[in-house]
Nucleic acid binder design. Structure first.
Lengths: 186, 186, 186, 186
DNA sequence: CATGAATGAGATTTCATTCAT
DNA sequence: GATGAATGAAATCTCATTCAT
């Protein structure tokens, strides 16, 4: 129980620092403070661990978005809130966010079941579809708009962790960039 | 013929398919049609090969941009041209482009010298700075604007290789998205 | 049973026969009846194995000298005893003794810490110093006298393993050469 | 011609520093300032180079002894002269001397033909035999006495290169130790 | 003679995984 | 559940040697 968490935490840290294949399972076990065999007691293979870590991380991000949702609002407010909350979470969990990015450009991505991928994207896709259906957002392919959002978040995150802005400046920039993005899709 | 080129081509293909560490040097040599030792005759270590391949790939992209530059034009036209040409090149060299992305999210990125990184970004940074100096572009941090462009390109590329658009539609979308981006920064 | 012991024994045998670099670790593992990886489970590198084997061998020689010491005797008797016991051990453990000689003329010698080297020589140096302090041995540098003894033993061993003498003749020669050596230093 | 000498000199230096197997032929060629293939143009195999270097080195020592011989003297004077001249040469050619020692404890020794070995030892064996025949030296096995001399030289050399004595002190010690040795065998 | 690119067998070392305890 | 010694396949890299020029 606790050990599983320790292993996931150790794997996260080391994967981001050394890459998936650059991190031996023995190092993960050592960093987690468990025996080598214990890792394989909980995860059948190393690949299973990678996938499990990705799902765990994305689940935590999703939970953060659920916990901070604004359900009773306009579409724009709800979308802006999601955008901002992803950014807040990404800035507070930089390692987790970099792991997600690393995973996305790795060959492991294809090991993720289509259902799992869809499950994760669904809330955002639903929101965009709702916007198109209600003619607020221009009728473009849903995954194109999703892609724009997603990579915009990547770009902003990348900039923010390098630039040393105050929290106020950060929040301002997050709001501003959302407005720019919003301008692109309405 | 040129064994170095054969090795680089083989490495590019396999790295994108299986990842850096998922690709044994023996497979690279085999795919390149050279002996195992030959690879190490030209690249001291596997890491050296990865770095060399990245620099080679980026150099070829840079050369494409030089070959298709529009020097005698307005800043907007030159920036739009760079944006479009990167997209054209990325679509024609999808494997190369995915390798670049993979490299960027890998721990190898930190092995790249600061000079080399700056050398690669300089043309774009210069263009943005010129735009800010001549008050065409709003005065924001240069690397922020660069980051917006870069990740926008990523997002569009990702969308275009999945969506099956005609060339005309593609070109239209590239033009449109540049205009949206341009709207964000002026 | 004890895999470490098996590995050390196999390494000793093969190093003396084929030299350090002439002996692949795979051969050592095979001879020891363990898997290739097991060797590296116990010794981080091949060099570590060489050093460990040297220290182990010297420790066994030292133990033999402790077990056969004559503590309550004159200085001459104690020195003669050490000299003879080294010779007896060397003749009974020819492979071990040749390994020690091989190690001494190899570049590995410099990897041995100064403390370890001093630790090994200390009992002999102490005995010689005692002899000089009590004016039994002439006041010459301690390490010079040590060097004389050490190389004398080498010379005698080399001769004895080639010449086929009876045990009685051997013992006589060991006694005689000690007396000659003793004559040199008093 | 010149290149052969360069190769031998480079090999000597590197073998003593890194050992036979620890020295790649490529490093030898590089240090000698010749191409990799050139080494194999002159020496069919690496082993051939090792043997050739040993014979060359011993030949140069032998030549030094011939050049400094005292033929018209007593046996004791001639033996003392050989002993001293070996020491002088060893001190001036420390690298060469260490190479000889390294070779002696290496498995390459057995690749040396018996004739070559005998040829090298002959002058000394003849001298000792003459001493025994004329009843100056006690009737012990010739190779035993040779072994005593040889290892005595080793021991003294080892001491002298570590102790920093003046030339006068060195020469005195060489004379003294010969006298001690002489006392052992008459 | 001399070169050095090219080779490929083989060396050291790593590491995911197993399994007896 | 938890361990960690043991495994052996496979990875990276080395290097003596060859050969076309």
């Amino acid at each position: 129980m606790d050990k599983v968490k320790e292993i996931l935490a150790a794997a996260l840290k080391l994967f981001v620092e050394y890459g998936f294949h650059g991190t031996p399972t023995s190092k993960i076990a050592q960093e987690a403070g468990v025996a080598n065999g214990t890792l394989f007691h909980y995860f059948k293979t190393k690949e299973d661990l990678v996938i499990a870590l990705y799902i765990d991380t994305k689940t935590r991000l999703a939970q953060h978005l659920i916990d901070n949702a604004l359900p009773e609002n306009t579409l724009k407010a709800r979308l802006k809130n999601r955008y901002s909350q992803v950014m807040y979470w990404a800035l507070e969990h930089s390692t987790e966010f970099r792991f997600i990015q690393q995973f996305h450009t790795s060959p492991f991505l294809s090991r993720l079941s289509a259902e799992e991928m869809y499950r994760q994207m669904k809330p955002d896709l639903d929101l965009i579809e709702e916007g198109i259906a209600t003619k607020i957002i221009q009728p473009r392919p849903v995954d194109f708009i999703f892609s724009l959002f997603f990579n915009h978040i990547n770009g902003l995150h990348q900039y923010l962790i390098h630039a040393n802005l105050s929290t106020t400046e950060q929040n301002k920039l997050i709001e501003d960039t959302f407005d720019l993005l919003w301008g692109m899709i309405i």
